[in-house]
Write a protein that binds this DNA or RNA. Structure first.
Lengths: 232, 232
DNA sequence: CCCAGGCTTTTGGTCAGACCAGTTTTGAGT
DNA sequence: ACTCAAAACTGGTCTGACCAAAAGCCTGGG
């Protein structure tokens, strides 16, 4: 019909968001750089970015950088969050593990299918670092390390909804996740032997781009921990 | 807090609209006159007017005058916004189906395991009602009906996280879900034959309390629709 | 009378370059 | 290694110019 320049740019920005080129939390180019890079004036860029903000896709702060918002966040202010009681509740911990099992299974599935070579390389590097680190680390450090590995998998899935949900889920329910690990360590005395092998299986399935195997390995990894919990 | 000039102006414009100073169909001042009249630059005026347009309050045409729109109109077009929204993007629709596949699979799994007898009875009743209803219904009615069935399954799962997420997900992304159904109907001409049988399979698995079968049937049901989408 | 055709004016869309106001980064100097 | 102020970003606003589309005007032929 009547293709405005700013509308074109707006569509382009949305596309990069939908296709996962721009992850939640990522920074946009500065308006001046966009202006140059897209060959339009800064006014036009401002118009497009303004629409993005109005539609709730990005968060723009005077002086700061413009960031992609997590589109699930506003819906995630459940009264569940911080209360220490919930995170320590075994039933809730089980539920968190249930959701992790399906979420990480799907994430691994899509990552095996769709990750770029660079992402695979980064994942591989992170995995090797994780294997090398000694047993000297604190439980907290281990938990964070574990989460970073799984988060990297999620972010390589090129799946906007899975990424958004994973981000929120891991940050909101870190307490519950940490609580599980903490209890597991207390009962088995140390980091369960299976975990290491399971991480290996996930890693290998993804590297082989075997999506079904990756889903199964990732899901089984979480369910293994869940069974530990059931034996209490 | 941080009073932007353009935000101030935006508020003023909305005020004149809400108080009736600007009736539907009325013309706004030209941007140059506003600029002078409000004592801000035309850039700032454009920013504000742009937001008014983005929020659907006014209709601005290149070369023509900017007019106030009839505010009730958008509410009648609700599920099919013409501007490119997230819900209209095919890639996003696919992603929504991916998440539905895993979410409804899990929900069916836990419902088969944990639903009370009363919940099973209610589910059974809803299923029979759904089977009886004729083909006379609108697409929208079908979509709502479909969703109610799946929502009932989710709510019978006794799984706090799955319930909470399902609720948010279905309300937030109803547009995308509806869009899929609408497209499917357009291409196949009518309600796909498989759907009816699949609902039956889900229903039966849950009634038999066969959790694995229920998960598989529910997941497959969504993936069936997804394949329809891939063939476009 | 009108009303069809161009001509002029007015409107929104884009551009360039400048300056202000916050944030983030950098680099002493301790 | 730390603190903290300068410097180098970022987004917000202003100015004045030009282009393109719509609306208004105006004139000449029915």
């Amino acid at each position: 019909m009547k293709p405005n320049l700013s509308d074109d740019l707006l569509q382009q920005l949305k596309e990069s968001l939908f296709t996962g080129a721009l992850l939640p939390g990522a920074e946009l180019m500065s308006q001046r750089r966009m202006s140059e890079s897209f060959g339009v004036s800064r006014s036009t860029v401002r118009e497009a970015v303004g629409q993005m903000e109005a539609q709730g896709y990005v968060d723009v702060r005077h002086g700061g950088k413009t960031r992609v918002k997590n589109l699930l966040e506003p819906h995630f202010n459940m009264p569940l969050g911080e209360g220490k009681a919930l995170g320590d509740n075994p039933e809730f911990q089980r539920q968190v593990l249930d959701v992790r099992a399906m979420l990480e299974g799907e994430a691994a599935f899509y990552t095996a299918q769709r990750a770029t070579d660079d992402q695979l390389k980064a994942l591989d590097a992170e995995y090797r670092k994780m294997q090398q680190r000694g047993q000297r680390e604190t439980t907290l450090a281990k938990a964070k390390e574990d989460l970073r590995f799984h988060m990297m998998i999620a972010e390589s899935s090129h799946h906007l909804l899975i990424i958004a949900f994973s981000q929120l889920f891991y940050t909101r329910f870190f307490n519950a996740i940490y609580g599980v690990l903490s209890r597991t360590l207390k009962t088995s005395g140390r980091y369960p032997e299976g975990i290491r092998a399971q991480h290996g299986a996930i890693h290998q399935a993804i590297m082989n781009r075997d999506a079904e195997a990756a889903r199964h390995a990732a899901s089984e990894h979480i369910l293994y921990t869940r069974r530990h919990l059931d034996n209490d």
